[in-house]
Design a protein around this nucleic acid. Structure first.
Lengths: 136, 136
DNA sequence: CACGTATATACCATGTGGCGTATATCACGA
DNA sequence: TCGTGATATACGCCACATGGTATATACGTG
């Protein structure tokens, strides 16, 4: 007993790869358990167990169709994740702005002589002021 | 041995509540390990261990400052989560559209007599067509 | 009513993650 | 060089989630 575990956060739910695969599958259209089982190549009990978790967390909702259960996506929990990302979006757009201003100043100081497209993958942002004291 | 575990998905990283708390703390400004320890009230080894995980996953990056390590946020992994959400955003905005069209038709059929702002929290979307055959 | 299909659940074994305690490492200052 | 502060790591323990196998339940069909 003691099923206090049922209060799982949405983040723990989507941490499981099979569950993310199920969600990705359902985003197209609703699917029966058997369809999910076949398309994702995972055993039927495993699918049912994951669907149970997803259902109890509000990610999916079943429609009874005789012996079948057609599961479809519900948006709310995923929107919760979307909302959680918001402060971070503000963070990285601020950094992009800073980078752009920086590049603007660079281009203004010494005009672009030669385009040198190196590793354009992981950009770095200029260092911030670095306070010395620990300050509680 | 067999530390193949280092290839953790970003979703497993943010599944841990303390790690999310650390990220939320760093979104404001960079912090030392000691600051994180005090503000979140978690033990120093625990903080260091979580920071290690976050660092190896590219969520954070330390700056050496004498004995201190100032950790700051890096956007890429969180942007990855943001990108993962994209198809689902399309999904639920489609549903909102459907709901709006539905409400428009309703309002057109019988004009709104009385505003009745009930529970505006969990909306439901009209049922879709429900195919009968399993169809492979 | 017996049988096949579709799904859910129980039980078990296993792997792994997180925390606490203890200790190592490193830098700074006296 | 020694002590202190800041951080990282090793080790052991425990809880828990996941998957497999077996079984239960429910529905439709002959």
């Amino acid at each position: 007993m003691a099923y206090i575990t049922s209060v799982e956060s949405v983040f723990e739910i989507i941490a499981e790869p099979n569950r993310r695969a199920i969600l990705a599958l359902l985003v197209t259209s609703q699917q029966s358990v058997g369809q999910i089982e076949r398309r994702l190549r995972i055993s039927q009990p495993t699918v049912s167990k994951h669907l149970r978790v997803l259902r109890e967390a509000g990610f999916v909702e079943p429609t009874v169709d005789a012996q079948r259960r057609l599961y479809r996506l519900k948006p709310e929990p995923l929107q919760e994740i979307d909302a959680w990302l918001e402060p971070f979006r503000r963070f990285w757009s601020a950094h992009v702005d800073a980078l752009e201003r920086h590049l603007d100043r660079m281009a203004q100081a010494n005009p672009p002589a030669k385009k040198k497209p190196k590793a354009a993958k992981t950009r770095r942002v200029p260092n911030r002021a670095r306070p010395k004291g620990e300050a509680r």
